[in-house]
Nucleic acid binder design. Sequence first.
DNA 1: CGTCAGATGATC
DNA 2: ATCATCTGACGC
Length: 179
Amino acid sequence: MLICREGVVLRITEVEAYRWPGDTACHARHGRTARNDALWGPPGRAYVYLCYGLHHMLNLVTGRDGEAGAVLVRAAEPVAGLETLRARRPGAEGPALLAGPGRLGAALALELDLNRERLFRRGSLEVRRGTPPEAIRCGPRIGIDYAEPAHRALPWRFAIEGTRWVSRRAGLEHLDAVR
DNA sequence: CGTCAGATGATC
DNA sequence: ATCATCTGACGC
């Protein structure tokens, strides 16, 4: 899948899945609130939130309207608009540009007002179908120490086999082959 | 290589 | 107080 924004085109290389009920890593675990409302809404929209006061995180809402589910985009590789990306993140080279959800948010210049944006139509933030990966790996998600152990162990992080565009704290070597 | 603290702000 | 992170500093 591709993410398009202001002339920048990225191919998604790494994601994590979240849902509620059944997953205490999910933001929806304490119910529907102003912040996570988009997570409960109709699929195909963005769920954007600020993490640690610094990083804008991009999720694609997946569940049916009224159910909470989303995919966190953790890394991507550049397809077009490299000049713009470099200008937004001076000094960053290679994976440091786009590998990691916070870095990705900075590279895309995400803002909180993109929350609830419809993604599968023309707009300032858009998702399009790209070249499907040949093989995928999966393994545990990252940065969810607060969740129940059984949910921490769920293999719900996915990355394209062989890509170098994977978040630093969570390299491909920790993931199992899926197909 | 590794571990660690601090940044920083919306949210509950 | 908490937090789906990142960076730079330090120690080995």
